[in-house]
Design a protein around this nucleic acid. Structure first.
Length: 260
DNA sequence: CTCCAGTGGG
DNA sequence: CCCACGGGAG
């Protein structure tokens, strides 16, 4: 094992992972489409929130073919509550690309698939020894390896990646990390040794106020369309034009409609 | 008020 | 590199 993540560290990590018990539905599937759905839904949404949506999604659109055949308007309606609708639109477009051209050589050629999601597909669906680095894993690495990440452990399978993500989500949290409450990687953690765990946290840029923002107005308008309304563009022309530009609604005359 | 299994566009 | 992008939950 390169760097300071020793064999015993990995052993403890995997032991903790087995005992942690969380059994996420996409954890064991090798179905690329299912993993893609889960990963895209998770891109900016907490796990607990995604769970019911994922179950409903797979039941309704079990395959890329099924999703590709659905009207985007219905896909966006099913997405309500999962945040950024462009993620749903990209997932829909990705399904259509997969159906017509097959899975691309470079997974990042799929719309909405970046470095993280591509790595997650290779790791969880294909079983490759690739470590997907999400915000949780990035935080662990920043704390444990201030000098830099030594690289993916030799022979690390999907369980190491999954375990690190769960550890970051449940233990090595941004605000109140549970270092002394059974963290399996406590031994050899430089930040914890120095007592600076909370300080060694990748900073995110502050978001603007949501109330009254264009973002909120877009959400309101799209929710209206998704629930069967046909709001007038005039109601909020800036938000309406923005949604049209993003390919999320269709404009007929002075009203907005779902995209067929 | 901050956080959340990121990505794409300027 | 910098920013916008939803909205529920702690």
């Amino acid at each position: 094992m390169p760097g300071s993540l020793t064999d015993t560290g990995v052993s403890r990590l995997l032991e903790w992972f087995e005992a942690s018990g969380a059994d996420l539905p996409w954890r064991h599937t090798r179905d690329r489409y299912r993993v893609l759905v889960a990963e895209v839904q998770l891109q900016a949404t907490p796990v607990d929130r995604v769970l019911p949506y994922y179950a409903n999604w797979i039941e309704r659109w079990p395959t890329a073919e099924a999703l590709a055949a659905a009207p985007l308007g219905e896909v966006l309606a099913a997405w309500q509550g999962l945040g950024y609708p462009r993620r749903a639109r990209n997932l829909h477009r990705a399904a259509q690309a997969i159906v017509s051209d097959g899975w691309p050589e470079r997974l990042t050629d799929l719309p909405g698939v970046g470095p993280y999601t591509a790595a997650a597909l290779r790791c969880f669906a294909d079983g490759e020894a690739v470590l997907p680095i999400d915000t949780n894993v990035e935080r662990i690495l920043a704390r444990r390896f201030p000098e830099g990440w030594p690289g993916t452990p030799e022979g690390a399978g999907w369980e190491v990646g999954q375990a690190l993500m769960d550890l970051g989500r449940l233990w090595c949290t941004a605000r109140a990390p549970r270092c002394e409450r059974g963290c399996p990687l406590r031994g050899g953690c430089l930040a914890a040794d120095e007592g600076v765990v909370a300080e060694v946290t990748p900073k995110r840029r502050p978001q603007g106020r949501y109330e009254g923002s264009l973002r909120q107005r877009r959400g309101t308008l799209l929710a209206s369309v998704s629930s069967g309304g046909t709001p007038a563009v005039e109601e909020d022309s800036e938000a309406a034009e923005s949604l049209v530009r993003d390919g999320l609604v269709f404009q007929v005359g002075d009203r907005l409609h779902p995209i067929a």
